[in-house]
Simulated scan of single mutants.
Amino acid sequence: MNRVGFIASSLLVLLALLSSTLFVVDQRQFGVVYALGQIKEVITEPGLNFKLPPPFQNVRYIDKRLLTLDSTDPEPMLTAEKQRVVIDWYIRWRITDPSEYIRNVGLDESAGANQLNRVARNAFQEEINRRTVRDLLSSRREELMADVKREVLEAVRGSRPWGVDVIDVRITRVDYVESITESVYRRMEAERKRVANELRSTGFAEGEKIRADADRQREVVIANAYRDAQKIKGEGDAQAASLYAEAFGRDPQFAQFYRSLEAYKGSFNKKGDLMVVDPSSEFFRAMRGTPGAAPASR
């Protein structure tokens, strides 16, 4: 029984020892084998690999993919005309030589990102100091990004290479600092209000002009219509008077009778009218049927 236990425990120890000598490198990583704190080997190809068991050898992994470093410093920078601007940028970079990277930068990706952020920040500050805001917003922005990339590459490939490669440098936003932005917005708002008020004033003046012209044309049309109506009415009255005169000239008694009827019509046109007249007066002669009677004037 003791012999079986000894064999089982020995197998377990052997398996544990064997497993500590095996490690797998992923296709997205570098495998760095350390021997007593020194870099012994760098595995660049994915697969199963062997090493000595700890503490003789240990393995660490470093990302070999394309990495992105985004700007995190909101501090403004000064342009050539001393304008304070805030920029957002990013850098695409990767680790190409794990040995140099570990010796000169650090043991993980964050160490390289921190140092690369500092170098990029200084390069952006230097290049922006040489340019105006117009340059940052125009097609010359490409020139600025190319110059920053060149300076960053010079820094990482200097006397102590970092073992990294910078693929691209891009600016995503250029803006004034908040205080200047608020001032610009206020000026824009005031300018838009001024234009709006000017347009409203111009529209009101044009509206008054149109209304005045319409009123004038209305008065002219009404006056012309009244003039034409009076002219037509006068012509009709003249023709009627001519016809009456001709008719009355042919039969004076009829004319006298017609005038009497018109006088009666004008005298008794309302129910509440009250007249105190002698019935034997000349006014009622036509009613009494007396020939040749003519009513007296009212």
Rank of each mutant, 00 (worst) to 15 (best):
R192P: 01
G106Q: 07
K233H: 13
A247F: 00
V86K: 12
A247P: 02
D168A: 07
I95R: 02
R157S: 07
R28A: 10
N114Y: 05
K51F: 02
S242F: 01
N58F: 12
F56E: 03
E81R: 10
L136H: 12
I91N: 02
S99L: 14
L18W: 11
K40N: 14
G37T: 04
T44W: 00
I180W: 05
T172R: 11
R92I: 03
D63Y: 03
R141M: 10
G207D: 09
R118C: 04
A214T: 15
L153I: 15
A238E: 10
E262C: 09
T96N: 06
D228K: 13
R141C: 06
F30T: 10
T44M: 01
K231S: 10
L274F: 03
A196M: 06
I171L: 12
K64E: 08
L137P: 01
I128G: 02
P98E: 06
Q239V: 10
G292R: 11
V32P: 03
Y258A: 14
N58V: 08
E208L: 12
R194M: 05
R134S: 13
I171F: 08
S110P: 00
A247R: 13
E191C: 00
T79D: 02
V174L: 11
A240C: 03
E182G: 14
R84T: 10
R28S: 13
G249S: 14
L116R: 08
A120E: 05
F50C: 12
T68E: 12
F23H: 13
E142P: 02
V42L: 04
L199S: 10
E154P: 00
A294V: 09
D108H: 11
L52V: 05
W162P: 05
R3P: 01
V33S: 06
R285F: 04
A214R: 15
E282L: 10
R218I: 05
